[in-house]
């Protein structure tokens, strides 16, 4: 009998499923990324007001969109982990968190880059930027809480609870930050970003933007899937299936 025998057959099944799905995300992701970059950066026309600098939206907007989407995905994984005690959902939550945090960071960073030529300063307390900053803190909280636990499963459960509390709070935070921003509206420049994303955006700009949104999702999903599978392998490294997969000869460990 295997000493490591465990009630879960599941991580193995998940691993192989993800392994099968991976190319279906990776290849379209790479192609669409290339298309979006060339189309957005070279082919799409200049903005009549912002010139070339508007082109950062092809990174900024997808990152900002999916930073929120991945938080929701993380919370759903947390719900699965807590309510149905699904172990791979715990691992999924941990796989999503850093990717989501990096997306949030990218949206903040590109937002600052974009803001500089537009209003002459790197940081403005604009509602979107502020909400993204708080979202980044929420991600950091989930990751910090997980790391703080010695026992990985307890850490994952705690992080799941926090992600769920966070996802309930996000609409309230967003509402409050936007509302705060209208109270303290100092100038009209902060509305410039909003204008670009309004439906009035020209189709020549909109289509590459849509492509870049899909591309960002696929590439981020690939990162999450790779992280998930690495984590499954790490946890299951003593199981025969993992050793077989890695091409390590299986040494029989008999029960003493």
């Amino acid at each position: 009998m295997w000493q490591w025998l465990h009630p879960y057959a599941k991580p193995e099944a998940t691993f192989h499923l993800v392994q099968k799905l991976l190319p279906w995300f990776l290849i379209p992701g790479l192609i669409l990324s290339a298309v979006a970059l060339v189309w957005g950066l070279a082919i799409a026309p200049q903005d009549y007001q912002q010139g070339e600098s508007y082109r950062i939206i092809f990174v900024h907007v997808p990152a900002a969109m999916w930073s929120m989407g991945f938080y929701v995905a993380m919370a759903i994984a947390g719900l699965l982990a807590l309510v149905w005690q699904i172990r791979t959902a715990e691992l999924a939550l941990l796989a999503i968190a850093p990717v989501g945090a990096v997306l949030t960071f990218i949206s903040l960073f590109t937002g600052a880059l974009w803001g500089q030529p537009m209003w002459g300063t790197w940081w403005v307390w604009d509602a979107r930027l502020t909400a993204q900053l708080i979202l980044l803190f929420l991600y950091l909280g989930v990751m910090a809480l997980y790391i703080a636990f010695e026992d990985e499963r307890a850490g994952a459960k705690a992080a799941s609870i926090l992600a769920l509390v966070g996802v309930i709070n996000i609409p309230i935070i967003h509402y409050s930050v936007y509302w705060w921003n209208t109270l303290h509206q100092q100038s009209t420049v902060t509305r410039a970003i909003t204008r670009l994303e309004a439906p009035s955006i020209a189709p020549e700009m909109l289509y590459p933007l849509l492509v870049s949104i899909v591309a960002m999702m696929l590439v981020s999903a690939v990162l999450v899937m790779k992280r998930l599978n690495n984590e499954i392998l790490r946890r299951e490294i003593h199981r025969p299936w993992a050793l077989t997969y890695l091409g390590i000869p299986v040494v029989q460990r008999n029960e003493e």
Partner: peptide, 9 residues
């Protein structure tokens, strides 16, 4: 009943 601590049964 079964109890698992970490990876150890």
């Amino acid at each position: 009943l079964q109890s698992v601590r970490g990876e150890r049964v």
